[in-house]
Amino acid sequence: MTVLVVATGNPGKVKEIEPYLSGLNWELRLKPPELEMEETGTTFQENAAQKATQVAIATGQWAIADDSGLEVMALDGRPGVYSARYAESDQARIAKLLGELGDATDRRAQFVCAIAVAKPDGTIALLTEGFCPGEILTAPRGEGGFGYDPIFYVPEQRMTFSEMPLEVKQEISHRGRAFQAILPQMKALKV
């Protein structure tokens, strides 16, 4: 099996990625804890590529990274690449977003996920994006999920991300769609 270093210090992220890559010849590992990564890109793809390149070069292994966030149309795409840094906690981020949106009638939004795979020399081998369109509710709903999940409503499912069973969310989410796009390419990689 070929080692694929996941550009995160979060073991939960590795568990989240594992099901997408099951059946492929990759052994997932967390990045070294002392390795700090910079995210200075202005797009999700730039940030994912930066992280994958930094981890690949530092470890000398194949690396995979993602960057994701929420884009709200009425807020000119904010919080965007700053989704995780929009405020100090999930609750504060939701409150800030709802406050900025106020009574806006245009509640359209989308979650975006970019995934990058880098060769051991840091060269980007694969790069893709997945999108999940939805709407921002006026108040949180549901108990599951994290981040903006309680206010992100997917009309065709008639549920927020927080209300969705995990299997449904994995299939239709921005991350699920990005992995669906990149998996055939990962299978074809010569490693």
Score class of each variant (00 low, 15 high):
residue 124 I to N: 03
residue 111 F to Y: 15
residue 159 M to F: 01
residue 166 L to G: 00
residue 56 A to G: 07
residue 13 K to A: 07
residue 129 E to L: 03
residue 2 T to S: 15
residue 12 G to M: 04
residue 31 K to C: 12
residue 76 D to Y: 09
residue 133 P to L: 11
residue 106 D to H: 08
residue 120 P to V: 07
residue 84 A to L: 10
residue 54 Q to C: 10
residue 177 R to C: 03
residue 112 V to R: 01
residue 76 D to R: 07
residue 43 T to R: 02
residue 105 T to L: 12
residue 46 E to T: 10
residue 37 M to A: 12
residue 14 V to F: 10
residue 119 K to P: 06
residue 133 P to V: 06
residue 51 K to P: 14
residue 125 A to R: 14
residue 102 G to Q: 03
residue 147 G to T: 01
residue 169 K to N: 06
residue 78 R to W: 11
residue 108 R to K: 14
residue 18 E to Q: 15
residue 84 A to V: 08
residue 108 R to W: 09
residue 123 T to S: 03
residue 94 I to M: 11
residue 191 V to D: 13
residue 133 P to D: 14
residue 113 C to K: 01
residue 162 S to F: 02
residue 69 G to V: 00
residue 139 A to W: 09
residue 161 F to A: 07
residue 99 G to F: 12
residue 144 G to I: 01
residue 143 E to V: 00
residue 147 G to S: 07
residue 46 E to H: 13
residue 99 G to T: 14
residue 38 E to I: 13
residue 147 G to P: 04
residue 128 T to E: 04
residue 189 L to D: 13
residue 114 A to V: 05
residue 57 I to A: 08
residue 8 T to K: 05
residue 15 K to Y: 00
residue 59 T to F: 15
residue 65 A to W: 11
residue 25 N to G: 14
residue 119 K to L: 06
residue 41 G to W: 11
residue 180 Q to H: 15
residue 173 S to I: 09
residue 29 R to A: 14
residue 90 D to P: 04
residue 115 I to F: 06
residue 56 A to I: 01
residue 83 S to I: 00
residue 5 V to L: 10
